[in-house]
């Protein structure tokens, strides 16, 4: 009976879950990028329609969804640095686990700085009637 493989860089534990999260956040950001390129293209065609679409970005639903977008970007960007360090730094693979927790901690700190400010801005705009 073969024993269960121990957690390696990409199988099991933080190594695998960071990879899963990297994929999920990457796909989410990709689809936002498609939409964002199209909505920004409106500045060339119709300033009024651009402002109309941007108004939805200030609304309650998309406004709060932006928190998820920023969280995804923070994780994907910082974990990307971790991936680069694993590939190019001679001790990267050895410290991949601790680097994962550094990524999570940094992402949380940056998110904690961003979220209250952004929520206040969205609420402010809802009160203005967006």
């Amino acid at each position: 009976m073969p024993t269960k493989p121990a957690g390696t860089l990409y199988r099991g534990k933080t190594g695998m879950w960071s990879w899963v999260l990297h994929r999920i956040t990457g796909v989410a950001i990709f689809f936002f990028l498609l939409v964002h390129t199209l909505d920004t293209a409106l500045v060339r065609m119709s300033p009024k329609d651009y402002d109309l679409v941007i108004a939805t970005y200030k609304g309650a639903i998309i406004g709060f969804a932006e928190l998820g977008l920023v969280a995804a970007i923070l994780f994907h960007a910082l974990n990307g640095i971790r991936v680069i360090l694993i590939d190019f730094w001679s001790k990267g693979a050895k410290y991949q686990r601790v680097m994962f927790w550094v990524v999570i901690a940094l992402a949380l700190i940056l998110f904690a700085g961003f979220a209250p400010r952004h929520i206040a801005n969205v609420i402010h705009d809802i009160e203005l009637g967006y």
Partner: peptide, 27 residues
């Protein structure tokens, strides 16, 4: 990836954090 980290963090700080964040965005 490294270039995008700088470009997108800069984009987010200017457009989504400073001077009222999302509220300032318009044509």
């Amino acid at each position: 990836g490294v270039a995008l980290l700088v470009l997108i963090f800069g984009h987010l700080i200017i457009n989504l954090v400073m001077n009222g964040g999302i509220t300032q965005i318009s044509f």
